[in-house]
Simulated scan of single mutants.
Amino acid sequence: MTDDGGNDERLAARTLGDSGPDVVFVHGLFGQGKNWTTIAKGLADRHRVTLLDLPNHGHSPWTDRVDYLDMAELVATELEHLGAPVTLVGHSMGGKVAMQLALRRPELLRALVVVDVAPVTYPPQGGRTDDPDEEASPFAAFIEAMRGMDLAALTSRDEADQALRTAVPSRMVRSFLLQSLVREEPGTGSGWRWRLNLELLERDLGELRGFPEPPPGASFDGPVLWIAGANSTYVLPEDRPHMDALFPATRLVRIKDAGHWVHSEQPETFLTTLRLFLERVEGT
Rank of each mutant, 00 (worst) to 15 (best):
N197S: 14
L79G: 02
A141M: 03
R147L: 12
T269A: 12
A40R: 05
D244M: 11
T121L: 12
V97C: 07
L181S: 11
V173M: 05
G210D: 12
R128L: 14
E265K: 12
P124E: 15
S60N: 10
R165P: 01
A102E: 14
V168T: 03
E202P: 06
Q32K: 08
A163D: 05
L178V: 07
Q32R: 14
S219E: 11
N231T: 00
P215G: 02
D150F: 02
D133R: 08
G17C: 01
P214R: 11
P212V: 09
V115N: 00
F211K: 07
L82C: 00
D204E: 11
L154I: 04
P186S: 14
L178Q: 09
L52Q: 01
P241Q: 01
V281N: 07
T250G: 01
S264Y: 11
F30P: 05
G28R: 10
R165A: 15
L154M: 07
A44G: 09
R147F: 01
V75Y: 03
S60A: 06
L151N: 00
L178M: 13
P267C: 10
L112Q: 05
P241G: 00
G189C: 14
L177P: 02
V115R: 00
H59Y: 13
P248V: 08
E144T: 10
R10C: 01
L103H: 11
S60E: 06
L198M: 15
L29D: 08
V66K: 01
G126I: 14
T129Q: 14
R171V: 15
P237A: 04
E199C: 05
L29I: 14
H27N: 06
I39A: 12
V253Q: 09
L164R: 04
P267K: 12
S232V: 07
K41L: 12
L271P: 04
G94P: 02
A163K: 00
D116N: 09
R46T: 13
M243N: 00
A40L: 04
Y68N: 06
A40Q: 07
A230M: 08
S92L: 02
L205E: 13
A153C: 10
D130A: 11
E159Y: 05
S60D: 11
A140V: 15
D133K: 10
F270Y: 06
E9P: 13
V281L: 03
T250D: 00
D4H: 09
R193C: 02
L108Y: 12
M1V: 09
V49L: 06
A258L: 10
L154N: 04
E238G: 09
A160G: 01
T15W: 08
V182L: 08
G42V: 14
W62M: 09
Y234V: 07
A140Q: 14
R203V: 06
S190N: 15
P61E: 03
P169W: 09
V253A: 12
Y234T: 03
V182I: 11
E134T: 14
P186D: 13
V262K: 04
P216Q: 13
Q100R: 13
L164S: 06
G191R: 09
S19T: 12
W62D: 09
D244G: 03
V253R: 15
T188I: 13
F30S: 05
E80Q: 03
D3V: 11
